[in-house]
Amino acid sequence: MITLRNVSKQYPTRGGMRTVLDDINLTIRHGEKLGILGRNGSGKSTLIRLIGGAEKPSSGTVTRGMRVSWPLALISGFGGSLSGRDSLRLVCRLYGVDYTDKVGFVLDFTELGRYFDEPVQSYSHGMMARLAFAVSMVIDFDCYLIDEVVAVGDATFTERCNHELFGQRGHKAMVIVSHSDAFIRQHCDHAAVLVDGRLHTFDTNDQAFDFYQASLQVTAA
């Protein structure tokens, strides 16, 4: 279980402190699939990073009773001069996993071939995305943080990602940030909406989407 208790996050700006997240309370249970909705800049990514531990709250506490992934991303941010193999090795070393068991899967998933030993900066966007995703699948987590990842890429890639994530790891907990209605409805049990730094959690996707639409109307008016 992951618990956020009275979590707030502030960043200093020229105009003083800006509150990105305000008194957030959230619980994520084993196997739970939670969608997070919110406009651009509403703090969705910050929330994900707080859950993952890449960011520490300004106040409040985050307790993690399960192993939480890093926010899955489409680029492998380990430095362009590293090869795909180096990136895989690095992640395996960081998490204390045997690298030799994982090479086969990554080579197979990414179809990088001889590019696996070329620097990542020579990769196309597609190759980069496949590598980053495959490397994320190498470490076993109880909860995956997914930030708009799987919606990008060609159909085959999306399908294979979906298979790995929602097929093979379908019993894991997930926190999914997406702008795609269909994606959230398909994969999440329920959703929460971030508006003005506050998190509104709902029991169903429909309620969350209704509230989200209404909040957009209010700000537009």
Binding site: R49, G52, G53, A54, V68, W70, P71, A73, G77, F78, G79, V91, L94, Y95
Partner: peptide, 11 residues
């Protein structure tokens, strides 16, 4: 330059 590494919790 190492910001992306910090998304990994062991780091």
């Amino acid at each position: 330059p190492n910001a992306s590494l910090l998304t990994h919790r062991p780091v």
